[in-house]
Design a protein around this nucleic acid. Structure first.
Length: 479
RNA sequence: GGCGACAUGGCCGAGCGGUUAGGCAGAGGUCUGCAAAACCUCGUAGUCCGGUUCAACUCCGGAUGUCGCCUCCA
C-alpha cells in the first residue's frame, strides 16, 4: 500500500514515489525570526513534523530542512525600532522558536540553514540566472524577469494575462514588469550588507529558499512544504528561479504540500490583521500537548478555527487518551487471576490486532490524522469497556491484551508526536506520603467521618492531585 | 475582475454510492457514603435545487453562502 499525498502542483492526490528508494528529502519554509511565533507558524511546523515522523515510521530516511529567513525588511525595521542589533534580534527569536517548538514536541530538523550563512550559494545562483539571461539590474537591484520563464504560474494555477484587470499592482517604477521580483537588493545606507558582483546588498526573499534547498537537498528533491500563503508568489518564484537556473530537464521539487490556515472566527490569523495568538500565550493557559493535539485533530490541509472552545474540546479529548493509558497501566500493574476467561478480552484483542493497519490506512491517505486518532480512541474505548465490566477478571489473556493495547496506543500516538507515556516516576517519598493519606482517608470513611475524608480529597485537589475510589481501592494521579 | 477551497447532527471532525467514524457537550442509567474516573443507553446529520442510479451525505450540473490567494504574511 502506497502513501498518497495531495500535490498542489498537480492538484491531485498522488502516490509518493521518492527520488531515492526509502529516502525522503524535504524542505519546509521556516520563519522570519523577528517576533514570537504565533499559532499560524506552529501549524506547518507540527503538520510537517507529523509527516516526517510518519515517513520515518514507514522506514524512510528523512532529510528534513527548515530555514530561517534571518535577514529581511521586517528584521531591519524591527531592529531599528528597538534600537537593537539585527543579529541579536534574530538570535533571540530563533532561540524562542526552538524553545516553543520543542514544547510542542516538534522534532528538530536535520538542518536549519540561515540565509546569512548561505550568501555565497545565493550569489552563485543569481549569477547562474544572470548568465542564462533571466535577470536585469536596476539601481543596484537584481531582478528576475518572470516573462522569460514560460511555465510561470503552474503551481498557483494562474494565468497572468487574465488577472491584470482587477489586480492590485505593486507600485515599483524600477521593475520592467510588476511580476518581476528581486533576487538581490542593493543596500541602503546603514543597512546590513554583503559584498556581491552587484555591489553591497542582501538577498531577496525567494532566492534563499532555492539556494538552500538545492544546496542541502539537490535538484528534484521530494517534498517542499509550507503555508498556503506561500504558494504565490513565494513558491512560484522558487520554482521559476530554480528551474531557470538549472536548465531544461531539471525539476526543483517533486511534491508540493501546503497546510491549511489557522483562522479566528473563520478569518485567517495573521500579523497584519492583528488577530493572532502567540504560541507562548496559548501555552501559558493550556498544556503544550493539548495545543499539539488540537493541531492534530483536524486534517493538515483543512482550515483550523482557533478558539477557547476548540482548546477545551481538545483538552478533554486528549485527557481521555491520557487517562485511558493510565487506567490500563494500573490494571496491568495489579494482580493476575489464574482463571481463564479468554472470551472477555476477545473484542480488545481484535481491536489491538487491527489497530496498526487501520492507522496506516488513514495515514497513507494524505496523512489523515483525524481518522488515525479515531483508531486510538477505539483502543481506549475497548480497553475501558473490558476493565469497567463489573465481572472483569484480570486473567492472563486480558492482561496481555491490555498490555498490548497500551503499547499500541502509546506507539501510534508517538508517531503523531503525542506523548501519552505516564509522567516519570516520582521520588520515593511522594508515593509513600500518598499511601499514608489514602490509608488515613480510608479509616475516616470506615468511621463514616465523611467530612474529614472529603477534606483530604479536596485539599489534595487544590494541590492538583486527584483521588479516585475504584473497586480495587483508591488511586491517585496528578491533574 | 482572475484563480481556488470548503459547506456533515448543539460544537469539532472523518470515511464511504447501499453496512458504527471518532471526539466534545447534553439526558438517563450502572458503580460510589458523596464525588471522580469508567461503562451502558439516547439524538439518528449531511446548505438548497436539479440530474445520473435499483440506491447519493457520497458522483455530475447549477444556485447560495463562507473563506483564501492575486501585497509582507505559515
Amino acid at each position: 500500500m502506497a502513501i498518497h499525498v495531495y500535490n498542489t502542483l498537480t492538484r491531485l492526490k498522488e502516490p509518493l514515489v521518492t527520488r531515492e528508494d526509502k529516502k525522503v528529502a524535504m524542505y519546509v519554509c521556516g520563519v522570519t525570526p523577528y517576533d514570537y511565533p504565533h499559532l499560524g507558524n506552529a501549524r506547518p511546523a507540527v503538520a510537517f513534523d507529523i509527516i516526517r515522523r510518519y515517513l520515518e515510521y514507514r522506514d524512510y530516511t528523512v532529510l528534513y530542512v527548515t530555514n530561517f529567513t534571518d535577514i529581511d525588511d521586517k528584521i531591519i525595521k524591527r531592529a531599528h525600532e528597538q534600537n537593537a542589533d539585527w543579529r541579536e534580534l534574530t538570535e533571540r527569536f530563533i532561540g524562542i522558536y526552538f524553545e516553543e517548538m520543542d514544547a510542542l514536541n516538534v522534532k528538530r530538523a536535520s538542518v536549519y540553514p540561515r540565509a546569512t550563512d548561505n550568501i555565497a550559494e545565493i550569489i552563485s545562483l543569481v549569477e547562474a540566472l544572470e548568465e542564462k539571461g533571466y535577470t536585469y539590474t536596476a539601481q543596484g537591484d537584481v531582478y528576475f524577469e518572470v516573462g522569460k520563464f514560460d511555465r510561470y504560474g503552474e503551481l498557483s494555477n494562474r494565468n497572468l494575462e487574465e488577472q491584470e484587470a482587477g489586480a492590485r499592482v505593486e507600485v515599483n517604477e524600477i521593475k520592467r514588469d510588476p511580476r518581476d521580483f528581486a533576487l538581490w537588493k542593493a543596500a541602503k545606507p546603514g543597512e546590513p550588507s554583503w559584498v556581491s558582483p552587484w555591489g553591497p546588498g542582501r538577498p531577496g526573499w525567494h532566492i534563499e529558499c532555492s539556494a538552500m534547498a538545492l544546496k542541502f537537498l539537490g535538484a528534484g528533491f521530494d517534498i517542499h512544504g509550507g503555508g498556503p500563503d506561500l504558494i504565490f508568489p513565494h513558491h512560484e518564484n522558487e520554482i521559476a528561479q530554480s528551474e531557470a537556473a538549472m536548465g531544461p530537464g531539471h525539476m526543483f521539487a517533486r511534491y508540493w504540500l501546503h497546510n491549511g490556515f489557522v483562522t479566528i472566527n473563520k478569518e485567517k490569523m495573521s500579523k497584519s490583521l492583528g488577530n493572532f495568538f502567540t504560541v507562548h500565550d496559548i501555552m501559558a493557559r493550556y498544556p503544550a500537548p493539548v495545543v499539539r493535539y488540537l493541531l492534530t485533530a483536524g486534517h493538515y490541509r483543512s482550515p483550523l478555527d482557533f478558539s477557547d472552545q476548540a482548546l477545551d474540546q481538545a483538552q478533554a479529548a486528549f485527557e481521555r487518551l491520557q487517562l485511558g493509558v493510565l487506567n490500563i497501566a494500573r490494571v496491568i500493574a495489579g494482580p493476575e487471576r489464574v482463571i481463564d476467561r479468554p472470551e472477555q478480552s476477545a473484542a480488545l484483542r481484535k481491536a489491538v490486532d487491527g489497530a496498526e493497519t487501520d492507522f496506516q490506512i488513514a495515514m497513507d491517505d494524505d496523512f489523515n490524522t483525524p481518522q488515525a486518532t479515531a483508531v486510538l480512541f477505539t483502543l481506549v474505548g475497548e480497553a475501558n469497556k473490558l476493565m469497567g465490566d463489573p465481572a472483569f477478571i484480570p486473567d492472563a489473556a486480558a492482561l496481555t491484551a491490555l498490555s498490548d493495547a497500551r503499547a499500541k496506543i502509546v506507539a501510534l500516538a508517538d508517531i503523531l508526536g503525542l506523548d501519552l507515556t505516564p509522567p516519570a516516576a516520582e521520588d520515593t517519598l511522594v508515593p509513600g506520603l500518598m499511601t499514608l493519606l489514602i490509608d488515613l482517608r480510608k479509616q475516616a470513611r470506615a468511621e463514616k467521618n465523611f467530612a474529614l475524608a472529603d477534606a483530604v480529597r479536596t485539599r489534595l485537589l487544590e494541590l492538583n492531585v486527584v483521588l479516585e475510589d475504584t473497586p480495587q481501592g483508591t488511586v491517585w494521579r496528578r491533574k
